[in-house]
Simulated assay, not measured.
Amino acid sequence: MLDNFRSYAPERASRLTLLVEQSLPLLDQENGMEAVQHLLRSQGASVIDSVIVTRELLGGSPSSLNEAKSIVLLSAARTRELRIHHQLAEKFEQA
């Protein structure tokens, strides 16, 4: 288990660790981070867990959170989630 996941429930920490381990080889591909996002989506990882895994792949520093969030939400694997996010933001702004 990765040290950054110790504060999570053991089952979740194990799942996140496994997702990171499965994702690492994909980073060597031409479109590595996009391949990672498709893997995470196909494994049923939530947006939040995908951000956590992506942040870890980026080095796990606090400054990598915004970059990880952008990578996940702007990925072709998450177009549905991005559309829903924009719809909710528009409704919030109109309220």
Score class of each variant (00 low, 15 high):
D3S: 13
N4E: 07
F5H: 06
F5A: 02
R6G: 03
S7W: 06
S7T: 09
S7R: 11
S7K: 12
Y8P: 09
A9G: 15
A9Y: 09
A9T: 08
P10E: 12
P10N: 04
E11V: 08
E11N: 12
R12D: 06
R12S: 05
A13C: 04
A13D: 02
S14C: 05
R15S: 06
L16M: 08
T17Q: 10
L18S: 14
L18Q: 14
L19R: 14
V20Y: 12
V20Q: 10
E21S: 12
E21R: 13
Q22C: 07
S23L: 04
P25C: 07
P25K: 06
L26W: 03
L26Y: 02
L27P: 02
D28C: 09
D28I: 01
Q29F: 00
Q29M: 05
N31S: 12
M33F: 12
M33W: 09
E34F: 01
A35I: 00
Q37S: 07
Q37T: 05
Q37P: 02
H38W: 14
L39C: 05
R41I: 03
S42M: 04
S42I: 01
Q43K: 14
Q43C: 08
Q43Y: 03
Q43S: 11
G44Y: 09
G44W: 07
A45K: 06
A45N: 03
A45T: 00
S46V: 04
V47Y: 08
V47M: 10
V47I: 13
I48M: 06
I48S: 06
D49M: 00
S50W: 00
S50T: 02
I52C: 09
V53A: 02
E56L: 07
G59F: 01
G59K: 02
G59M: 05
G59I: 02
G60F: 07
G60A: 02
G60C: 01
S64W: 00
L65C: 03
L65I: 06
L65D: 05
E67F: 08
E67S: 15
E67I: 05
A68H: 03
A68R: 00
K69L: 09
S70E: 14
I71H: 11
L73H: 02
S75T: 06
A76T: 13
A76M: 06
A76H: 12
A76S: 15
T79S: 14
T79V: 14
R80S: 12
R80W: 05
E81S: 13
E81H: 11
L82K: 02
L82R: 11
L82S: 10
R83Q: 15
R83D: 14
I84V: 15
I84P: 04
H86C: 13
H86V: 10
H86W: 12
Q87N: 13
L88T: 07
A89D: 08
A89G: 10
E90G: 07
E90T: 14
K91D: 08
F92E: 11
Q94M: 13
